[in-house]
Design a protein around this nucleic acid. Structure first.
Lengths: 139, 139
DNA sequence: TAGCCCTTTGCAACAAAGTTGCAAAGTTTT
DNA sequence: AAAACTTTGCAACTTTGTTGCAAAGGGCTA
């Protein structure tokens, strides 16, 4: 059976390379979101830093992963659901960051409420990040 | 009449220095949120980069400004309302980032809805950032 | 307002994060 | 299997953020 990573890459019209397979695989195996640093550490010396930057960029462009905003200056990436096409992200779910263990979850079943904006403002995207304690760290 | 900046600094138990006055003044005059880079550019050669970092850090700790999460790796800072005490931020309002002009607004009158989380998750803070087109850039 | 004490600033040096151009290696297509 | 194209790794560089320390500045008291 073909690996899931390969299928995903082909579906998004990307050539299948070692770097892309490994990085995508890492996302598939991780519960939460990953930062560039997470990936760099995990991969060890396997890949060049630059390659990781470029791979993540490509994945975002092609709609394989999406970014999660945060206030700590570390961009987090997480796998998109299937309805994300290239250039058109539809990640209208809530994200949760655990203050304790640092894991970032995509709460796929918690959707973002519609926000009523003041006159003149038009929304194109809404990002909602909740932080607190996750089910694993709960005392 | 005393400048507003000086009053604010004193209220937050900070000694009044030139750097702090100028940076706070810049916040008071700006409609939206500012990044470190904005301030560095605006201030020109006037202050050392390090001083700006430290001043922003101090302001956040003392509850004068708060950070706004974003996905583009540039922390934004905005003035807190009066009910933010040192170490206790109460910025439960929505933020809006204009895709066009880049301005970040604090929508003080739009409050963040309560989110129902899955079992085991406990929220301590909720950040909601809407992006789109602001009233100034509306065609 | 002079002098003491404590805080803040600027400098220098460093560490980390991100970018760019280009030649070599790898993929895809025919 | 070779041509055409894409991706990777390297090197060099820019930007962003951090730390320690001596000098300068602010606040308080007499």
């Amino acid at each position: 059976m073909q690996e899931a990573a390969i299928i995903t890459l082909k579906k998004h019209e990307l050539s299948v390379t070692d770097t892309r397979k490994k990085i995508l695989q890492f996302f598939l195996e991780s519960a939460g979101a990953l930062t560039h640093a997470d990936i760099e550490q995990q991969m060890g010396e396997a890949f060049d830093r630059v390659t990781i930057y470029r791979t993540l960029q490509t994945f975002v462009e092609k709609g394989i992963i999406h970014t999660i905003p945060s206030a700590d200056n570390a961009i987090r990436y997480a796998l998109c659901k299937d309805n994300c096409a290239a250039g058109h992200h539809h990640d209208d779910h809530v994200h949760f960051m655990c203050d304790d263990c640092g894991t970032t979850y995509c709460l796929d079943h918690v959707s973002v409420p519609k926000i009523k904006l003041p006159k003149g403002f038009t929304a194109s995207q809404t990002d909602l990040v909740v932080s607190g304690v996750c089910y694993k760290c709960e005392a």
